[in-house]
């Protein structure tokens, strides 16, 4: 796991000693409680937006994800929870092939967006990522103006023919992200000058400016204060009307507040997946229960 974690640290920028501690605690936990043969609960839905089967991820020789299968339904918010280092972010990054940017990472399994095989060699990543957008853990606006940040995606993909169209896309996206009123007077000031929460909403606006079908969010609130977090959570609920959303979070409360269904990951395995209410009120597996009752993680 060492390499995987180092990579994790490099690419995600979160290194905390707590992580190592958490893993140790999980190890002791794991000795008593066996993994389930199959994922507990109901990981599958009818007519899913994304159908993911037997996903395995390797960093060089270390296996980070072990045979995860689940569905993400249309216009559904799915949250992935679990202790640090359990592979939930790695899993999320498979869904728009962001893992391609790490040389030694290999992904196996059958991952489909509607009927499209995500790892089909003929598939174009550029096209895929235009359909499956991603919001990252740390707000990462480009060192450009607010306008240029949002217009970046539409520009590179050629989505707007005229300046007028582009203006409209930018305004719409900022409005959907709930940022329009705060920034409409300073669209041409740098995006890096916004507050953390505003930056993250800018990143969300930037993502939805391309009108993706699925939005992946990798712990979008972990770097934000509670008020900013509340705003983002509100936004997620609104966005779920038009987009399919998968969100990784380490806050169980957040998962409970924003998601329809919740998947619990443990050391690279999907232990349990169910309606959010069920997971948090009547967890079926001991590990899930241990986690949501705060015995580790």
């Amino acid at each position: 796991m060492e390499t995987a974690q180092q990579l994790d640290k490099r690419s995600l920028g979160n290194n905390d000693a707590a992580k190592d501690k958490a893993i140790k605690e999980q190890d002791t936990m794991t000795q008593d409680t066996p993994y389930p043969e199959q994922t507990v609960g109901s990981p599958y839905v009818d007519d899913p937006k994304m159908r993911l089967r037997d996903v395995e991820v390797f960093y060089a020789d270390n296996q980070a994800i072990h045979g995860v299968s689940l569905d993400i339904g249309k216009n559904e918010v799915v949250s992935l929870i679990g202790p640090s280092g359990c592979g939930k972010s790695t899993f999320l990054r498979c869904l728009n092939r962001m893992n391609d940017t790490i040389d030694i990472c290999r992904v196996k399994g059958d991952l489909r967006l509607e009927d499209q095989d995500l790892y089909d060699p003929k598939l174009d990543v550029v096209e895929l990522r235009a359909r499956v957008g991603m919001v990252f853990q740390k707000p990462n606006p480009f060192p450009k103006s607010i306008y240029d940040n949002v217009a970046y995606g539409p520009r590179i993909h050629g989505l707007a023919n005229k300046k007028y169209d582009l203006d409209e896309i930018v305004e719409n996206s900022l409005q959907k992200a709930g940022l329009w009123n705060e920034v409409k007077d300073r669209l041409h000031s740098p995006g890096t000058g916004l507050s953390g929460g505003q930056q993250q909403r800018l990143c969300i606006a930037r993502t939805i400016a391309v009108s993706p079908e699925v939005v992946l969010m990798d712990e979008p609130c972990s770097a934000l204060d509670p008020i900013a977090t509340a705003k983002i959570e509100e936004l997620i609920s609104e966005l779920s009307e038009s987009y399919t959303i998968a969100i990784v979070t380490h806050s169980m409360q957040q998962a409970a507040r924003v998601s329809h269904r919740t998947a619990y990951f443990h050391l690279g395995r999907l232990i349990e997946m169910n309606d959010t209410d069920t997971v948090f009120t009547k967890p079926e597996h001991d590990l899930t229960e241990a986690y949501i009752t705060g015995r580790f993680g």
């Binding site: 920028g13 962001m98 550029v126 990522r129 957008g133 991603m134 990252f136 990462n140 480009f142 590179i156």
Partner: peptide
């Protein structure tokens, strides 16, 4: 230039050269 910049651009579906020319180089 932080990896987050690259991720942000690639995550939107930019090609590598677009990321370099339009995000990394200006930054």
């Amino acid at each position: 230039v932080p990896q987050a910049m690259r991720d942000g651009s690639l995550g939107l579906g930019a090609t590598k050269s677009e990321t370099i020319k339009k995000v990394i180089f200006p930054a």
